[in-house]
Design a protein around this nucleic acid. Structure first.
Lengths: 121, 121
DNA sequence: CCGAAAGTACGATTCCTGTCAAACTTCGAT
DNA sequence: ATCGAAGTTTGACAGGAATCGTACTTTCGG
C-alpha cells in the first residue's frame, strides 16, 4: 500500500484526492534541523514517550493509539513539534493521522542519538 | 581537634563552620540522575557549549576560561545546573572554581549520550 | 444525509527558565 | 590592612512553553 505524499504548490492548487493529501504541513529536510531543535523536541517527556513507542514498536501509529496523560489539543501540539523537528513523518489514513519515526534519517543526521535515548524513562 | 573557621554573617555576628565543610554543595550520585534531568541540563546551548568544551578539551577548566555571552551571575546559574545534573564536578583552587566533566560516570549511566551530542552546534 | 470519530485551530492561562544588576564573600597579592 | 580578581547570592523581570476548553473540519459508516 504505497502512500503518496504530494506537496502543495504556491497557488494552493489541490494535487490529488488520494489519502495523504496536503492536510499536513510540509516536512522539513532533516539536514536543516539543528541539534538544538532536536533536543528541544526531545526534552519533553510526553514527546520522548511518543518517540520511544515508535522506536521500539517499529511501526507507524495513529495519534490516538498513544495513551497520553494530556488532552487531545495538547497532543496535537506535541505531534506538531515532533514533525517540525524532523523526527516524525505524518500522513492521513481516513480521519486518523499516522505517525512514522524518521529513524534512518535521524540516525544519519544525529548518529547514536536515538539509541542513547531509547528505552529510558 | 576540629579546626574552626570564622565566618561573618550580615549582622556582623560570628558564625563557625567546620573545616571540611566545603564552599561547594555536595555532588549528586549519578545513579540518582534521570535522563530527564540530563536532557533539561543539556538542552540549553550555553550549558552544552560548556560540556562540549570540557569534553573535547579533556581537562578541568576554570569558570572564567569559558568565553560565554552572558553575565557572571547567569554563568554561575548554568554551572550550578550542570553540577546538580551530575554532569560536572566542581572544586576550588584559590578563588577559581574548577570544573571537571564526569565523563566516565556519565558514559556508564547514559551510554553514547555524550558522544552523540559532542562536536555539534 | 446525518452523526460520530479523529483530530485541528485558537485563545487564555499558568508556570518555568534564562537573564541581568547590585551587593556580597572569599582568597591571593601588594 | 587593603585591593582586586573570581565567583555567589538575591530579587526582579521578560519570554516562552505546556496545558486546557471550546469550537471547528474532515472523513467514514449507516
Amino acid at each position: 500500500m504505497p502512500i503518496v505524499l504530494r506537496c502543495l504548490s504556491y497557488d494552493g492548487a489541490v494535487a490529488t484526492r488520494q489519502a495523504g493529501r496536503e492536510r499536513i504541513p510540509p516536512h522539513p529536510d532533516i539536514r536543516t534541523i539543528t541539534l538544538q531543535q532536536v533536543l528541544e523536541a526531545l526534552v519533553d517527556p510526553v514527546r520522548r514517550r511518543i518517540v520511544n513507542e515508535l522506536y521500539t514498536g517499529g511501526q507507524d501509529l495513529r495519534c490516538g493509539t498513544f495513551d497520553l496523560p494530556i488532552s487531545k489539543s495538547t497532543a496535537t501540539h506535541h505531534f506538531n513539534v515532533l514533525r517540525e523537528a524532523g523526527l516524525i513523518r505524518q500522513y492521513y489514513v481516513g480521519t486518523s493521522r499516522m505517525n512514522a519515526l524518521r529513524r534512518d534519517e535521524i540516525d544519519e543526521a544525529f548518529p547514536g542519538l536515538l539509541r542513547a535515548l531509547s528505552g529510558r524513562e
